[in-house]
């Protein structure tokens, strides 16, 4: 990501981690990536005084992906749109996060057909999924707050590499869902 990645692990790194996490968390700039119905609710979060995303430091919706660090995929992604989505994601500078807003972006939703990508995680890595069709503005705020908590605790440099290794190992050893038989609990 940046210089902070080069700091050797230890007390200094954890302090920098806390500081960076705190700052990143409170200045998330979302890219305007409105696609369908969910985008209208996203706009409501940005513009309706009742919800007011500015309270969480994210009111500056950026049109240019280069200035944004959170991509809210709000709506259904068609096969025609998928390459565009990926390009915009690639144009965003790291660190960056993706929020899949709504059933369509998370899983294809009710449109299980030829036109729609069955979840944007086929195209870009997703950090947080938000269910709903469309999710209420409060739910979007909640998702952003949850993501902020995640960001707050993000490790850097050597610590991060360690965590990535652990998570990967856990994922490899996890039982695949198709082997989980029995009650749908």
């Amino acid at each position: 990501m940046g210089l902070e990645e080069k700091i050797p692990s230890g007390f200094l790194l954890t302090t920098v981690e806390k500081l960076a996490g705190y700052m990143r968390k409170n200045s998330l700039w979302p890219a305007t990536f409105g696609l369908a119905c969910c985008a209208i609710e996203m706009m409501a979060v940005g513009s309706a005084a009742k919800y007011d995303i500015a309270r969480f430091g994210s009111e500056v919706f950026r049109a240019s992906p280069r200035q944004a660090d959170l991509m809210i995929v709000a709506g259904r992604v068609s096969n025609k749109m998928a390459p565009v989505l990926r390009q915009i994601y690639d144009q965003m500078s790291a660190p960056k996060w993706v929020l899949a807003m709504g059933a369509c972006a998370s899983s294809g939703g009710m449109f299980n057909n030829y036109a729609i990508v069955q979840g944007v995680d086929h195209v870009v890595p997703v950090d947080i999924y938000l269910p709903g069709c469309p999710p209420r503005p409060e739910m979007l705020l909640d998702a952003i707050i949850k993501l902020q908590e995640q960001i707050n605790d993000t490790k850097l440099g050597a610590n991060r590499a360690q965590i990535i290794k652990e998570v990967e190992l856990a994922a490899m050893n996890a039982k695949p869902t198709h082997e989980m038989k029995g009650l749908l609990a």
């Binding site: 369908a36 068609s78 025609k80 749109m81 009710m110 057909n113 729609i116």
Partner: peptide, 28 residues
């Protein structure tokens, strides 16, 4: 065409009543 969702085709596989759930998502 960047938001083509195949709603019209999808409705051919659902009952008449379920159709309202699809059309409502056209012009949102």
């Amino acid at each position: 065409g960047y938001l083509h969702t195949g709603i019209e085709k999808n409705m051919e596989y659902r009952s008449w009543t379920q159709g309202t759930t699809f059309v409502t998502r056209m012009d949102y």
